[in-house]
């Protein structure tokens, strides 16, 4: 039995700007089921962080409870991390972000953690515009408790035990669009070509970024009547545009043809290059995005790709006008400037 992955690695593995290979961004060996979509998401996150040359100690990985929320143990083992109470990851991340705004916040949650017990927390963290990437690994079932239907399961499907889904599904992308997220995308764990550039762009984005990732539960939701199985998703997936992430330092070689291709400049100078597959594709219109998601759903298709991007949207610290220096780096005398400052504040109210 293999308890560990060999530390040998390919002798011709590429290194990034920090001199690290992607293996340096790995975590512990996964204990999830063999073939779990979450492991593919893990691998996409590892690849994205490697390609972005993120210093691992500048990343905080946040999670709640569930199979999805176990996953951060399997990537970035040199980063900070917090595995919080069920559904309460958004509050803990808000606190962490308030204390240290310099870290990159990468949150991993699931359909139970975000669409059921933590739905309220989810709604408010979107509303709060916290600068973070919020990833939901969405498999439509509660895998950790043996496959009960989750709130994201489509109405009318049955689970492995034959239980019928009686209620409408919650679409977290639609919610995020309604509540003002500035980066919203959907992807599939089995499509790294799409997923890796989306994660890279979302991590470079200033503001609240949300990616809902269809991630088949190989043990409890990979049967013939599921709409989240590998076969079903492979057959019903569709995309409106192919997105590519171009980091700041890379020279842009090919021209972007108007009407087919669009470049969106992100906050840090990197580019999101979009090749439109559908002529009316538009990243600036949240209402249209909601419409597109719902109309494809009615056709039985799963629409994936980047739905909405506002590269200049405000984030929590802008709205709050908080200090540029992270709070955890402010000295006692700055945080508590003493009686003289207090009196002058009090005086201003008189």
């Amino acid at each position: 039995m293999s308890y560990q992955k060999s530390s040998f690695y390919h002798p011709r593995l590429p290194v990034n700007d920090l001199g690290l290979t992607y293996r340096d961004y790995e975590g512990a060996l996964s204990t999830l089921c063999a073939g779990c979509g979450h492991d593919a998401i893990t691998s996409a996150i590892v690849q994205a962080c490697f390609e972005l040359s993120l210093p691992p100690h500048q990343v905080a990985k946040m999670s709640g409870i569930g199979c999805s929320s176990k996953a951060p143990n399997y990537f970035l083992n040199k980063s900070h991390g917090f595995n919080s109470v069920h559904g309460r990851m958004p509050s803990v991340t808000t606190g962490a972000n308030l204390a240290n705004r310099d870290l990159t916040y990468l949150a991993m949650s699931g359909d139970g953690d975000s669409a059921s017990i933590g739905l309220g927390q989810f709604a408010h963290v979107v509303r709060r515009q916290l600068n973070m990437l919020y990833v939901v690994a969405n498999n439509g079932v509660y895998g950790l408790t043996k496959g009960q239907l989750a709130a994201t399961a489509d109405k009318g499907v049955t689970n492995k035990g034959g239980e019928l889904s009686l209620f409408s599904d919650i679409d977290l992308c639609v919610m995020a669009l309604q509540l003002g997220a500035t980066f919203v995308a959907r992807s599939f764990s089995g499509d790294k070509k799409q997923l890796v550039p989306l994660i890279k762009a979302a991590m470079s984005h200033q503001g609240f970024a949300f990616i809902d990732i269809v991630s088949p539960c190989v043990t409890f939701n990979n049967h013939a009547s599921s709409t989240r199985s590998y076969d079903y998703v492979h057959e019903h997936i569709t995309t409106a545009a192919v997105t590519d992430f171009i980091p700041v330092k890379t020279e842009i070689t090919s021209d972007c043809q108007a009407g087919v291709c669009e470049d969106i400049c992100l906050h840090d100078g990197s580019l999101m290059r979009i090749h439109k597959l559908q002529a009316d594709y538009d990243t600036k219109n949240a209402m249209k995005a909601i419409n597109d998601i719902e109309s494809h759903k009615q056709k039985g298709e799963i629409l994936t790709g980047l739905f909405y991007l506002d590269p200049n949207g405000e984030s929590f610290h802008d709205v709050n006008n908080s200090s540029d220096t992270p709070l955890n780096q402010l000295k006692q005398e700055v945080l508590c400037p003493g009686n003289r400052v207090l009196s002058s504040i009090n005086d201003s109210f008189r």
Binding site: S7, F8, S189, Y230
Partner: peptide, 14 residues
């Protein structure tokens, strides 16, 4: 094969 990518994700040697 169901193309779940589990094997290419885990392979230590790419």
């Amino acid at each position: 094969c169901i193309e779940c990518s589990a094997c290419d994700d885990i392979c230590p040697m790419d």
